[in-house]
Amino acid sequence: MGVLSRFVSFGASDGYDRDTGTPIWIFDHGYHAGLILPRRALKDFGGAHSDVWLTLFPEADWFEFGWGDKGFYFDVPTFADVTFAIGAKALFWPTETVMHVAVGTGSPWTRFTHSEGIEIPVTDMALKKLVSFVEDSVESSQMLGPGLYGVSAFYKGRGKYHLFQTCNSWVSQALRAAGVKSAPAPAVLSSGLMWDLQRRF
């Protein structure tokens, strides 16, 4: 199992709520990280996009969101498929983006047993801001096609992907938008993002 966070007490205004907060999760899948929100977050605080996902995945207990380069996601299903040309194109030329939405039941820890993860308890205000950030990162609720693993799908993303705006940077930005502390510089790489979060919790 991945690395479970060590909870540290912060004020509710910071987005954390160690004792009564709702858990969210970040999982590092090797080269990109995903943000997992519980179903309640979408149900209680979501808008039009969340309504589509809740309807499309009625049995889902949680939703994992991953924003990133369209070509990279479609061409690189596993880390072993990464090539220099694919990586260079994604990083050095601003490219179109997609949102990868994967869902599951039960605990995310039992689904992503081979991925490093961290759990963060957050306030309802933080959940609301996280859902808003995710929805603002999606251009359309029309599915582009099936996702990379399990029950999942791709949607057209909003914004351009480049060296300073990666899938991992996106996760860090989502956390900061919700008042959860995350340093932008280490978050360019998934390993840096996880290192920064683990030393905070």
Rank of each mutant, 00 (worst) to 15 (best):
G87R: 13
G87I: 10
G87Q: 11
A88I: 05
A88F: 14
K89S: 15
K89N: 15
A90P: 08
A90N: 03
A90G: 14
L91E: 06
L91V: 07
F92A: 09
W93C: 08
W93Y: 11
W93A: 11
W93Q: 14
P94Q: 00
P94S: 09
T95N: 15
E96L: 02
E96V: 00
E96P: 01
T97N: 05
V98G: 01
M99V: 09
M99D: 04
H100P: 01
H100R: 02
V101Q: 11
V101Y: 08
V101S: 09
A102G: 15
V103A: 00
V103C: 02
V103N: 04
V103L: 00
G104Q: 06
G104N: 10
T105H: 01
G106N: 06
G106Q: 04
S107I: 03
P108E: 04
P108Y: 12
T110Y: 04
R111C: 05
F112A: 14
F112V: 08
F112K: 15
T113Y: 13
H114L: 14
H114W: 06
S115D: 13
E116R: 15
E116W: 11
E116V: 12
G117K: 04
I118F: 01
E119P: 05
I120D: 11
I120R: 08
I120Q: 11
P121M: 00
P121H: 06
P121Q: 07
V122Q: 10
V122F: 11
V122M: 08
V122C: 03
V122P: 03
T123L: 03
T123K: 09
D124M: 00
A126E: 11
A126Y: 03
K128L: 05
K128P: 00
K128I: 00
K128Y: 00
K128M: 13
K129L: 09
K129Q: 13
K129W: 09
V131I: 05
V131L: 06
S132E: 14
S132G: 09
S132I: 09
S132A: 15
F133R: 10
F133G: 06
F133I: 02
V134T: 09
V134E: 10
E135H: 11
S137F: 07
V138W: 00
V138N: 03
V138L: 11
V138F: 09
V138S: 12
S141G: 12
S141K: 05
S141R: 10
S141P: 07
Q142M: 02
M143H: 01
L144E: 11
L144N: 12
L144Y: 03
G145L: 09
G145F: 06
P146M: 03
G147P: 12
G147H: 11
L148P: 07
L148K: 14
L148S: 12
Y149H: 07
Y149G: 00
Y149V: 02
G150V: 01
G150H: 03
V151H: 08
V151I: 07
S152V: 10
S152K: 06
S152G: 00
S152E: 00
S152N: 04
F154C: 02
F154N: 05
